[in-house]
Design a protein around this nucleic acid. Structure first.
Lengths: 240, 240
DNA sequence: ACAAAAGTGTTTCAGGTACACCCATGG
DNA sequence: CCATGGGTGTACCTGAAACACTTTTGT
């Protein structure tokens, strides 16, 4: 097995990003249209190869994120999703991709650059329903990113990463509703959000005026974990 | 950035395994003593480089697992933990390691082979407490593996993967107690385990006789998820 | 007979769900 | 003054925790 001529193979390493945001109360993902083969003209997750063999994986993810969206590193949740290394996932040869999940507040339209002819926020539903096809195994990576976001919403304070600096409790509720694809009772949600220790802290004298009674403003709290978690409704589907 | 001479770097890809089991009601991890530099003589997680550039990551994990432990692929839970790619994690150069988490029922002592001078089950506590030092960033990988196991116990039926074909509810309880490091009330645990739909199914006419009343035997149920989950005790630490 | 482990019944209490209701503002 | 969304009170019920108690075996 280990004869003295044998040497382990060297492979290309890429970083791909599942960047999720909320636009008009719907979950969107940032996609790029490929300007080069393979898969020229089809949409793909933003990403690319490591720059050099000293670049850290997370640093590469940050670099790709900046290149595509130019957003400030604050308010930005980034975590590793996993490694995707099926032998035939890239027709050019063996490429192992490390995927990262990024959650961001609503952003302006991105602009294309590099080998990319278009960069745009697309409805996640358009991809999961099959109306939009992605290059490589990116459909699979996106599905796992969404599932990760769904489950982290329940146990952590991830939801605030979808919101801007300040937000109302109704804003927060829209995050849960969009990511989980359910309707929640606003009155019960209100209390759950407030009672979860460290989740959100009120912004003094802050109110947002729309139609109806102005809402208090909050910002993200210090905690990373939800102790009495915001739970997905299970048995009784009586929420609205 | 992308001049026409530039080519992405090729790096070595390794697979490392966090193999957890229960021995004498304590959580153990399989470690190997390295027979070659770097880190000759220190303990490390089992693992190795990809065999060739067509080998799938999960297949490589399975291969390494067989090489070290010779256990049958049945009753074996294997899942990807993540990619570890810090630039200086391996003194030989850039190596990216894909870690897998394996959960197995109690096994006989493994035997060393390959570049390894010893292979043995070691107490997880010996590593986390610092009494035993691991090569590379394997301490970090192990910590994440344990944390993954802990949280999956709560939401999924992973616990049965620690048990053999059939087991008693008390066996199952020992799994939770060892992995979480807590004591649970056997009477409440009994009902929770039984009431969780799809978790465990009784084996007809099966009983295990020790001292005291013989216990009913069960086997793993069809479900992968725990709907009324077995929860870690939180506020009140009144379990025993 | 007794110890020990398996398994059941029951009480208490916290928190989820549902929903009636009041509050504050814009039009 | 009324429509609209913000925010509060509360009844009901499920499930977690605690623990007394019965059952079934080995010694």
């Amino acid at each position: 097995m280990l004869d003295n001529k044998w040497a382990p193979p060297r492979v290309l390493v890429a970083v791909d990003l599942v960047i999720l945001t909320l636009r008009e109360a719907k979950l969107h993902v940032l996609l790029t249209e490929r300007g080069i083969d393979p898969f020229r003209g089809t949409y793909a997750l933003p990403g690319g190869f490591l720059n050099n063999d000293k670049e850290d994986l997370l640093a590469a993810a940050h670099r790709e994120l900046q290149e595509e969206t130019a957003l400030d590193p604050e308010n930005l949740h980034l975590e590793q999703l996993g490694a995707y290394g099926a032998p035939e996932r890239d027709p050019r040869g063996r490429v192992i991709s490390i995927a990262y999940l990024a959650i961001s507040p609503e952003l302006p339209e991105p602009s294309a650059g590099g080998d990319v002819t278009d960069a745009a926020w697309r409805l996640v539903d358009d991809v999961t329903s099959g109306r939009l096809t992605l290059a490589f195994d990116h459909h699979h990576i996106l599905e796992e990113g969404i599932e990760r976001a769904r489950s982290k919403l329940e146990r952590t304070t991830l939801a605030t990463a979808f919101c801007g600096e300040t937000f109302t409790i109704a804003d927060l509720q829209r995050v849960y509703e969009a990511v989980w694809g359910v309707r929640l009772d606003p009155r019960n949600f209100y209390r759950k959000a407030q009672h979860a220790p460290g989740f959100i802290v009120p912004v003094e004298a802050g109110r947002r005026s729309t139609r109806g009674r102005p809402a208090k403003l909050f910002r993200a709290g210090p905690s990373k974990v939800l102790q009495p978690p915001i739970t997905r409704p299970h048995a009784t589907w009586g929420n609205r």
